[in-house]
């Protein structure tokens, strides 16, 4: 926990320690030469304390409702559920977790997400490249592609529930050309791909606008030079765009992975409820089920801790890989 110690120390410091230069120049002297000294020093105290007063509500909320619960949850994951409520059980919850086929499936699905991640980054990256190169209608494309990204996963999931229903429109179309019907959300081999596909459909616009913001910082002269030299699109991407956008690409990789690990709950809840046969479980859904439906909060806490570790590992791994490739270029 890099954070745990700092906010309280800031609080205790405020009454005892001397303050940084900024406050020296800012003493409010409106009371004039004959204002009472006490009033002036009170004003000075207030000025000195003001920054702490300004951050106090934020610190209270973040420490109390985000950092503290994190510690509480980790602690909680080493205690028991049900009959053993409150007892220290060591690693029992973690052992139970890795024995549970549903959690194993959730981890396998995380693996699938990691494998699909480059695609989920490349699609918006490529589309942003075309939009940046002013393909006809680029303004329109930008607006349209971004739109699903602001819709709730619940709305998106509900819409695709309609479209992918066994007797729904997609199968009707396929049926008319002699294919199917496919049970898109009811076949354990297909359902997870559909959910991930819908997630990518709904969120690629997010990566797209981030890429476009990155392009805006790119040196246009470099790009023009490459094209004057007759570089192909592939060469331009490889030698101008990717090296110039390392930071943006990094950002999209990390945010897309975080999105996949933490914002698919709505889709899973609406589209498949984790089924069929548990094939669409992800850690976040598993946590929800164990906490809310199975009444096993300690086990859920253990799963939470694992999810947090996965996010840390994925984040650090990606950053280090990208930093290395960035150095090569």
């Amino acid at each position: 926990m890099p954070v745990g110690g700092s906010p309280p120390s800031a609080g205790s410091v405020s009454t005892t320690e001397p303050f940084a230069a900024a406050d020296g120049r800012t003493v409010d002297d409106r009371s004039g030469p004959d204002g009472s000294r006490r009033a002036r020093s009170r004003a000075r105290d207030w000025e000195r304390l003001a920054p702490y007063v300004l951050v106090a509500p934020a610190v209270l909320i973040i420490v109390g409702l985000r950092l503290y619960p994190l510690l509480l949850g980790v602690n909680f994951s080493f205690t028991g559920d049900g009959d053993r409520n409150g007892e220290a059980v060591g690693l029992d919850n973690y052992l139970a977790l890795f024995d549970d086929p549903l959690f194993q499936q959730a981890l396998r699905n995380v693996g699938l997400l990691v494998v699909l991640l480059p695609v989920a980054v490349a699609v918006p990256g490529l589309l942003a490249t075309f939009i940046y190169l002013r393909v006809p209608g680029h303004r329109f494309f930008r607006s349209v592609y971004f739109f699903p990204a602001v819709l709730s996963p619940v709305i998106v999931g509900a819409i695709f529930n309609l479209l992918l229903a066994f007797d729904g429109p997609l199968n009707t179309v396929l049926g008319s050309v002699g294919v199917g019907p496919v049970d898109w959300l009811g076949d354990p081999d297909v359902a997870m791909f559909m959910v991930v596909g819908v997630h990518v459909w709904a969120t690629f616009g997010m990566g797209l606008v981030v890429f476009l913001a990155g392009f805006a910082t790119l040196d246009a002269a470099l790009l023009d030079a490459a094209r004057v030299d007759g570089a192909s699109l592939r060469q331009v991407i490889r030698h101008v765009i990717i090296p110039g956008l390392t930071r943006t690409i990094q950002f999209v990789f990390v945010t897309t992975m975080i999105g996949m690990l933490t914002s698919m709950f709505g889709l899973l809840y609406v589209m498949t409820s984790g089924g069929p046969e548990g094939s669409t479980y992800l850690p976040e859904y598993y946590i929800w089920i164990q906490q809310g439906q199975m009444n096993r909060p300690a086990l859920a806490s253990a799963a939470s801790t694992i999810l947090f570790l996965i996010m840390l590992v994925v984040g650090l791994l990606q950053l280090s890989i990208l930093r290395r490739t960035g150095r090569e270029d």
């Binding site: 890099p2 800031a10 994190l70």
Partner: peptide, 21 residues
């Protein structure tokens, strides 16, 4: 330190703290 603490909190997803919360 406060700003860095804020940034760190940014990376704590709700799923990780939902049970104790």
């Amino acid at each position: 330190a406060l700003f860095l603490g804020c940034l760190a909190a940014l990376f704590i997803p709700f799923q990780v703290i939902m049970v104790p919360l």
